[in-house]
Design a protein around this nucleic acid. Structure first.
Length: 809
RNA sequence: GCGAGAGUGGCGGAACUGGCAGACGCGCUGGACUUAGGAUCCAGUGGGCAACCGUGGGGGUUCGAGUCCCCCCUCUCGCACCA
């Protein structure tokens, strides 16, 4: 090593600029997708490019994915690490509305800014496969997928309630409704409206989406969230004949058929189709008023827990078990969209029914009791726990679980009911009465009905319009653009009308990973050969805020496309790992707290390598951590130390035995940790090795190279610079992860703690392979141990190899 | 309310299937080098004079518990009238 090189100081800005340019020029990150022998596809969640620029959370997410990708690359894989922009959607549009800009003009600027910032982080990206969901080359295929789903009956049109702001004259997303009022017109109450919308039939796949969770390799927290979201319940559907017309039977869903004898009234959702026909003349005004009131209420506050309300319809049904008359009520605590939209109410064993019965003075009859409890003990609240059936005729004394099966079977035998599985998952509403999205590729013709836009006519271009704002006309922005919606029917040629809604952003992001490998193909959505070779994605790393929507939609779409024969797999991501959340100085970053920090200034001040390394060090990657400016100092010192130690190494020298062993151990530990995304402890291990080099050094070439290779995934620029300084002409990322010798990771002599009655009384040095009695003898010979035993007989001896000896006297 | 996760030094955080609590880093203290340093390097650093005590609190299992079991408290994140 020359003197000049030795004296060179670590200058992150210079090193990083040099290598970012070097990688671009050399094409270091490029991978030939057709010929690569060991494909490995890593995916990070593509960002929505906000005008505010890159957020620390983005960089944390990207860096964690990049570390893993670079690690795989060093293991010899051909790593494909693409990037793109999820630039359509309501966020961009709302921001544009706020600043008075047009999203079509604002988005390209935001994307360019994001691209600049992302480049500065030094990710191993394949920019030649970039996608942007707002480009016609991309959304052409989003629309194409829509058409494919439509042709196979998976995209359907039906009515659904939506939030409607009378002031905006437009539909709002749930997040835009604040306590029942419009986010932009604080004094305007949001209403519920029933509109025709496009839905994707995700519920058809509910069971499969659930079943596959048993085998896909995903973070448990994510799988748990999906299970809850899909919400499978087992129960029964039961028919209740109407008292006045036994030929009509009202169907309910219940998970507690065992409590059938305790049903004392029934409740319909206000929107239930039978409400009008069941309402008697006398009750009509009250029922209609109630119905109107709930219909006006916005979707969000309707769901908020509150006092029970409801109205009696005037009609009764017959309990098939007791033959009693049950009054039929309507109440908004019963939801139209779940089960059959009607319930049998068992106040004794359901909290909500109990509350309702209390308010309206309805009878409460107990049918489940614990052993030794009297069947007529009054209840203070609905009891939903286990027990035995009481007041239930021939089913008395049966365990509740057994009773569920027995009563369902008894109902089935009489044609009054049947076992049934329900899911809380709803079909995916993809219609948005908005401007900034891909137009839904459908045409309505008076003669032919719904006609999909022929594939040759795709994309349906989103017209650039001045007037993209929602306004008083009361319809989607595109419905005001006559040149857009007036179109000839593709089937009959008659004048027809285009769909003027755009599709949900989540549709754009539900398939982007399928597009990346084929991003350069203009003629197909996904090249069959590339898709087969690269997909499913090997490792997907992203935030758990997308656990249910994005990740579930992606799984659904993949399943659907698989069933349509378009792709050869049904699960999109072999592995998914959720990273944690970054907080700042102990609190969540938010504008109102004023603790939002931009990655730019840190990268400016410390360099990308220090910044990356710190983010990976500040806490557990999968749990998140606390970002504190002071923490940056430690990792900066570490990189400076690596710089110095590597530059001062003595190429041919034999290193001390301890250092040699320490290096083998570190290689093993860092490899295992990175594999499991335990980045913080991997870095701690490297710091320990650096301390060892300082103490027992200098390092030789092998130790230096190992250290630099291990640092490389985290701090790629400095690693390249040092690699080059060591005389390598090619990129460090074309080198191989260092190998360790297993024997060298195990110490021949180990120190054991010796406990007497649970307290450490001495320490002994023994050979790792010493027999138990040898170890015990050594333990007894220790003076501290000897004193603690004080001549008492030893009742018990435990030897844990490599750990400790425990003696009981 | 339901579901999931977490409470460990002054701080961020380690601790594999129960096995020497506090790795690693920040900060702090002392020292070295310096005209000087908020630069760098070295050493020390849970509490207590000690026996000992220490992982939110209280019980328990065990030779041994941060880790397992029961009860309670606090916080974070999801979902929220799903029958």
């Amino acid at each position: 090593m020359s003197d000049s090189a030795m004296n060179e100081k670590y200058d992150p800005a210079a090193v990083e600029a040099k290598w970012q340019q070097g990688w671009a020029e050399r094409g270091t990150n490029r991978v030939d997708l057709r010929t690569a022998p060991r494909p490995f596809y890593t995916l990070m969640m593509f960002p929505y490019p906000s005008a505010e620029g890159l957020h620390i959370g983005n960089v944390f997410a990207f860096t964690g994915a990049d570390v893993f990708a670079r690690f795989r690359r060093l293991q010899g894989f051909d790593v494909f690490e693409p990037f793109g922009f999820d630039a359509f959607g309501i966020h961009t549009e709302n921001y544009a509305l706020n600043v008075g800009a047009n999203p079509a003009q604002l988005t390209p600027r935001s994307v360019a800014n994001f691209r600049r910032q992302v480049r500065r982080v030094g990710l191993m990206l394949n920019w030649e496969h970039e996608v942007d969901t707002t480009s016609p080359e991309y959304y052409r295929w989003t629309q194409w997928i829509f058409v494919q789903l439509y042709k196979h009956g998976l995209a359907v049109r039906k009515k659904a309630p939506v939030n409607w702001c009378p002031a905006c004259q437009t539909v709002l997303a749930n997040e835009q409704v604040i306590d029942g009022f419009c986010e932009r017109h604080g004094d305007t109450r949001v209403e519920q409206r029933l509109l025709e919308q496009w839905f994707f039939a995700i519920t058809k796949y509910a069971q499969r989406l659930l079943d596959n969770l048993d085998w896909i390799d995903w973070s448990d927290t994510t799988k748990m969230a999906q299970r809850n979201w899909i919400g499978r319940s087992e129960g029964a559907e039961i028919d209740f004949a109407l008292a006045d017309d036994p030929t009509r039977r009202l169907r309910v869903f219940t998970t507690r058929p065992d409590t059938l004898f305790g049903a004392t009234y029934m409740v319909l959702a206000p929107e239930h189709a039978w409400v009008e026909s069941l309402t008697t003349l006398a009750q009509r005004p009250a029922v209609m008023a109630y119905r109107e009131r709930t219909a006006k209420m916005d979707v969000v506050s309707r769901r908020a827990v509150k006092e029970k309300t409801g109205v009696f319809t005037g009609s009764d049904a017959i309990n098939p078990a007791t033959q009693e008359r049950l009054p039929i009520w309507i109440a908004d605590y019963v939801l139209a969209e779940y089960g059959t939209g009607a319930i049998m109410a068992v106040p004794a064993h359901d909290e909500r029914d109990f509350e309702f019965a209390q308010v309206f003075g309805l009878p409460i009859r107990r049918v489940i009791a614990n052993d030794g409890e009297r069947a007529d003990t009054p209840l203070a609240a609905g009891y939903a726990g286990p027990g035995r059936l009481v007041n239930s005729a021939q089913f008395d004394a049966m365990d509740a679980e057994q009773g569920k099966r027995a009563i369902t079977e008894w109902l089935r035998a009489q044609g009054q009911g049947t076992a049934r599985v329900q899911y809380r998952l709803h079909d995916w509403c993809v219609s948005r009465q908005r401007y900034w999205g891909p137009p839904i590729p459908m045409i309505y013709c008076d003669a032919c009905g719904i006609v999909p836009v022929p594939e040759k006519d795709l994309p349906v271009l989103l017209p650039e319009v001045e007037d993209f704002r929602p306004n008083a006309s009361g319809v989607a922005p595109l419905a005001r653009v006559e040149t857009f919606y007036r179109v000839a029917c593709p089937q009959c040629g008659q004048m027809a009308r285009r769909e003027t809604d755009v599709s949900d952003t989540f549709l754009d992001s539900a398939w982007y990973f399928l597009r990346y490998p084929s991003a350069q193909r203009g003629d197909v959505a996904f090249d069959p050969e590339l898709t087969k070779k690269w997909l499913p994605v090997d490792m997907y790393i992203g935030g758990n805020e997308h656990a249910v929507l994005h990740l579930l939609y992606s799984r659904f779409l993949t399943m659907a496309l698989h069933e349509l024969g378009l792709i050869p797999f049904e699960e999109p991501f072999k592995q998914f790992r959720a990273h944690g959340l970054i907080i700042k100085d102990g609190a969540k970053m938010s504008k109102s707290r004023g603790n939002v920090v931009s990655p730019d200034s840190y990268i400016e001040q410390y360099g990308a390598d220090v910044f990356r390394l710190y983010m990976m060090f500040l806490g557990s990657y999968q749990e998140g951590g606390d970002f504190r400016d002071e923490g940056m100092t430690g990792v900066r010192r570490f990189l400076e130390g690596v710089w110095r130690v590597v530059r001062e190494h003595e190429p041919k020298r034999d290193v001390a035995e301890v250092l040699l062993r320490a290096t083998h151990k570190t290689i093993r530990k860092v490899g295992e940790d990175v594999e499991a995304l335990r980045y913080n402890t991997a870095i701690a291990a490297m710091m320990t090795l650096l301390n060892d080099v300082k103490r027992h050094g200098p390092a030789n070439r092998w130790v230096s190279e190992a250290l630099v290779l291990m640092v490389a995934p985290f701090a790629p620029h400095i690693a390249e610079e040092l690699w080059e300084a060591m005389g390598h002409a090619t990129s460090i990322f074309d080198a191989r992860w260092p190998a360790f010798d297993d024997a060298m990771t195990r110490d021949a002599v180990v120190e054991l703690a010796v406990q007497v009655n649970g307290k450490v009384r001495g320490r002994i040095q023994v050979a790792a392979d010493d027999a138990e009695d040898v170890v015990i003898a050594a333990a007894l010979a220790d003076s501290g141990v000897h004193a603690a035993i004080a001549g008492k007989p030893i009742k018990r001896r435990v030897v844990v190899p490599g750990r400790l000896v425990s003696l009981v006297v």
